[in-house]
Design a protein around this nucleic acid. Structure first.
Length: 482
DNA sequence: ATCGGCTCGCGCAA
DNA sequence: TGCGCGAAGCCGAT
């Protein structure tokens, strides 16, 4: 306890990450005399700037005069990573490495099972402290649970820092929320407290020994992945590209956003989703830049305007809803519900009515591969799938139609969800992320939605036809585009 | 083109 | 206990 008190005092010398953003996974039994470094293991937020995990790790390193090391473990084969994903990831890591090196921080690439690789490194370096970021997905929860058991035994302290959300996921709510309307007031209530500028990472006092930490030979790194899913060259990679896109969106894309983001044949979405899910851009940074752009506190803009749907106010609320409320609702769901990507995670009214509809006849049945290769009778659907295959993204509005049709054209809701998640994770550059799982669960399982009138196959889950799509732009122009 | 009904359950007010 | 209301819609009546 004495050590904890003195730790707190000496930490006061530095600008600290807000306490509520940090979760103690392993608390040390004093005294810890480990001579080694502070290890910051990133599993999601692979960026140098606006990174609270990295900043917290640096604060510990400077306070206790330890070196700082950053590690990234390449995804194991079983996570289904693709060449497309790794093309983005490795380029982003290169940018991260060169940024870290300028500040005398080493980046170490680990291979194999995350907990084994990290445990080995922590032992070998006699690590003083471990800091990680938060990814609320099962594979991450599992390796962390295994590692925690081992770190308790060797008495290595471990802090987890939520640098992905504006309001830390455990602070927003203590349970899986029922709908956007139940989490919205909670998030808005805490927004002002957590929407504060990030601290900058500074140079470490000692230069990196190039003997101990030679530059990474990136061309020798060949991760195990599905090579058949080709890379996307049209998406610029990394932190600086993300900030350029953000400024571009604020100056060019925000006006008219509420109406035009849903027009399917136009390209009026923010274009930020890839950067957020791949860890290049912090949503807190986005909201801070939005605040700067508006010249007034966001709290003044959280209510949608009552007068007229084309106003600036409506655009701002629509963007805040997507970039903050919906995104953090998705994080909340995955954090508290391990069935985020399957039938068991659906709300009970949906599970019950979908089950009653199991025997209903389907007009069309397609296999995963027929869907993946865009070989259905529906040219609108095929165009959406082709957009995904060739650009690594699908228009946000089309994602709903796309997923709902998969429910309509497969044998069971379980299979529909499985295929939708698989295609999303395989081809979307922003895949393997809570947003994608929650999007599929909304469309196929009524998650965070209300029940609607009963119909075959869908039960009480909201149905969708191309009529709805027609109200959001030109189907012909969209098909022609892809 | 526009409007009401559809249908469930959470959370708040009482 | 009652009541308002909800991510993107559909359908049939007017």
């Amino acid at each position: 306890m004495e050590l904890a008190a003195s730790t707190k005092l000496s930490l006061l010398k530095f600008d600290m990450v807000q306490e509520e953003r940090i979760r103690r996974i392993v608390t040390p039994l004093p005294p810890t005399l480990s001579p080694g470094p502070v290890v910051c293991a990133l599993g999601r937020d692979f960026r140098l700037n606006d990174n609270d995990a990295l900043h917290h790790a640096q604060t510990l390193a400077l306070t206790f005069q330890k070196p700082l090391i950053v590690t990234v473990c390449l995804w194991p084969k079983h996570t289904g990573a693709t060449r497309r994903m790794y093309n983005y990831h490795l380029q982003a890591l290169k940018e991260l490495e060169s940024g870290l090196r300028k500040l005398s921080v080493a980046l170490i690439i680990l291979h194999g099972k995350e907990d084994d690789a990290l445990y080995e490194l922590l032992c070998k370096t006699k690590a003083f402290h471990l800091v990680t970021d938060v990814l609320p997905l099962r594979f991450s929860k599992r390796w962390k649970a295994r590692l925690a058991q081992r770190l308790h035994k060797i008495n290595t302290p471990w802090d987890e820092v939520d640098t992905h959300n504006v309001v830390p996921v455990w602070e927003a709510s203590t349970k899986a929320e029922f709908a956007a309307r139940t989490i919205r007031p909670k998030l808005f209530h805490k927004l002002a407290h957590f929407l504060v500028p990030h601290e900058k990472i500074t140079a470490m006092p000692h230069t990196l020994s190039s003997l101990e930490h030679p530059a990474i030979l990136w061309h020798t790194i060949t991760p195990e992945c599905d090579e058949s899913v080709g890379e996307i060259v049209s998406v610029k990679v990394g932190e600086s590209a993300a900030l350029i896109q953000l400024q571009h969106f604020l100056s060019e894309g925000l006006k008219g956003y509420a109406l035009r983001r849903n027009i399917i044949h136009e390209n009026r979405q923010s274009g930020l989703s890839v950067y957020i899910s791949r860890g290049s851009l912090s949503r807190r940074r986005i909201l801070l830049e939005l605040e700067k752009h508006l010249g007034s506190k966001l709290a003044l803009h959280i209510e949608p305007s009552k007068n007229g749907s084309g106003s600036d106010q409506t655009d701002i609320s629509a963007f805040i809803e997507e970039c903050f409320i919906r995104a953090e609702l998705a994080e909340n769901f995955c954090f508290y519900n391990d069935n985020y990507d399957n039938f068991n995670g659906f709300p009970s009214w949906a599970k019950e009515t979908l089950t009653q509809a199991r025997g209903d006849s389907r007009d069309y049945i397609y296999t995963r591969d027929e869907l993946a290769t865009a070989k259905t009778h529906d040219e609108l659907w095929n165009a959406a799938q082709r957009e995904l295959l060739t650009t690594g993204k699908m228009h946000g509005y089309m994602r709903m139609y796309w997923a709902k049709k998969i429910l309509e054209w497969t044998e069971s809701p379980e299979e529909a969800m499985h295929i939708a998640v698989d295609l999303n994770d395989t081809y979307e550059l922003d895949g393997c992320d809570p947003n994608g799982y929650v999007g599929c669960a909304w469309a196929i399982g009524g998650l965070h939605d209300r029940p609607w009138f009963r119909r075959p196959v869908f039960g009480a889950v909201r149905y969708m036809t191309s009529h709805a799509v027609k109200k959001h732009g030109s189907i012909e122009a969209y098909i022609a585009k892809y």
